[in-house]
């Protein structure tokens, strides 16, 4: 069984629900490791439906955004569906400022995401 340091993964009706464990996603080494853990979900485990739940995340840097963008590109290339959920207002503002709310599919809650996956 895979062990993750920065995410927790649960299966719900063939959808992988991924929760971030870090409240602040800033540290460069942690961001690098987080990237490896996310990439493995689609590149190694071949998961095709993913929900990224941001409920624990209070702060993230532009370097973390960059890693999420790379992850989005990988999911698209591997024809996997990706939805972001439970984003706090301040974090959503970061997505909106950088227009990433147009790149990512974002829903209010896990239930909203599961309903369309």
């Amino acid at each position: 069984m895979a062990k993750y340091r920065h995410i927790e993964v649960n299966e719900s009706a063939h959808v992988s629900v991924v929760r971030f464990l870090d409240q602040k996603i800033i540290d460069p080494d942690a961001i690098q490791e987080l990237g490896y853990e996310l990439f493995e979900l689609v590149e190694k485990d071949n998961r095709k439906k993913l929900v990224l739940n941001f409920s624990e995340v209070e702060f993230l840097s532009s370097a973390a955004l960059g890693k999420l963008i790379t992850f989005e590109k990988k999911t698209k290339r591997l024809e996997a569906d990706l939805i972001l959920t439970n984003i706090a207002p301040e974090i959503f503002q970061v997505f909106a400022i950088t227009n990433l709310d147009k790149l990512f599919q974002i829903k209010d809650s896990e239930a909203d995401a599961l309903a369309v996956l």
Binding site: S62, L65, G66, K67, I69, E72, T98, L103
Partner: peptide, 8 residues
């Protein structure tokens, strides 16, 4: 939008 850097 898909370029990972340059958002700071």
């Amino acid at each position: 939008l898909e370029i990972p850097g340059g958002r700071g």
